[in-house]
Amino acid sequence: MLVCSVVLPLVAALGLVLGGPSAGRADAASVCAGRPAKTVSFKTGELRVYKSRSYACAIAVAKKSGPRRAMSVTLQARGGSPVVDRGRYTKQAGPVTVHALNRCVRASATISGKSGSTGWILC
C-alpha cells in the first residue's frame, strides 16, 4: 500500500512537468518541426506554415472542431511538385512537408469551401 501512495503522486507530478495540463489538446503543440513562419487566417480556419533549416511544413486547422468536413492543405517548393493532403477531417489537414533549402514555397488551405493562401514566401 505504501508503494501506491508514493508512486501515484510521483506519476501525476511527472505528467504535469512533462506535459502540463493542456498536453492532450490538439493545439498544445504543432505537428510540424521548425519555427512558425506564416499564419493565414480565413473564415473557417487557419493555414500555418513552419520552417526548419531544410524543410517547410504546412497544416490547415479548423477554427472549431466538429463533424467531418472537406479539408485540404497544399505545399509546394518553387520548381517542385505540390504535396497535398485532402480528405474529410474533424480538426486538421496535414502536415505536408517539402524540401525547401534555399527555395521559396507557397501554401494554401481549404476548409468547408473557404480558403487561404500565402503566395511565394521564405525566399
Rank of each mutant, 00 (worst) to 15 (best):
M1A: 13
M1K: 11
M1N: 13
L2V: 14
V3I: 13
V3Q: 09
V3F: 12
C4W: 02
C4K: 13
S5C: 10
S5N: 09
V7Y: 12
L10T: 04
V11N: 06
V11T: 08
A12V: 08
A12P: 04
A13W: 12
L14Q: 09
G15N: 06
G15M: 09
G15R: 09
L16N: 12
V17R: 07
V17D: 10
L18H: 05
G19L: 08
G20K: 02
P21S: 13
P21N: 13
A23M: 04
A26Q: 15
A26P: 14
D27F: 07
D27A: 02
D27G: 14
A28K: 03
A28G: 09
V31H: 07
V31A: 13
C32M: 01
C32T: 07
A33F: 11
A33D: 15
A33P: 07
G34C: 05
R35A: 13
P36S: 14
P36E: 11
A37N: 02
K38Q: 06
T39N: 10
V40F: 03
V40T: 03
S41G: 05
K43Y: 14
T44K: 15
T44W: 11
L47D: 00
R48A: 03
Y50Q: 00
Y50S: 05
S52P: 01
S52R: 05
S54M: 05
Y55K: 09
Y55A: 12
A56N: 05
A56Q: 00
C57T: 00
I59S: 01
I59Y: 06
V61M: 02
V61Q: 04
A62G: 05
K64Y: 10
K64I: 06
S65G: 15
S65T: 14
G66M: 00
P67E: 15
P67N: 15
R68P: 06
M71W: 00
V73T: 07
T74I: 11
T74L: 00
L75M: 10
L75G: 00
Q76G: 04
A77S: 12
R78L: 10
G80A: 05
S81Q: 15
P82E: 11
V83R: 07
V84Q: 07
D85K: 06
D85P: 06
D85S: 14
R86W: 08
G87V: 04
R88E: 03
T90P: 04
K91D: 15
Q92E: 11
G94H: 02
G94M: 02
P95A: 06
P95M: 04
V96W: 01
V96G: 03
T97V: 11
V98C: 08
H99Q: 14
H99F: 15
H99I: 13
A100Y: 02
A100R: 01
L101M: 10
L101H: 12
N102E: 15
R103T: 06
R103P: 00
R103V: 04
R103C: 04
R103Q: 12
R103M: 09
C104P: 04
C104S: 14
C104T: 01
C104K: 07
C104N: 02
V105K: 01
R106C: 08
R106H: 11
S108A: 11
S108I: 04
T110Q: 07
T110P: 08
S112W: 12
S112G: 12
G113V: 02
G113R: 04
K114C: 04
K114R: 15
S115V: 08
G116F: 06
G116A: 03
W120T: 10
W120E: 02
I121M: 01
L122A: 09
C123D: 04
C123K: 11
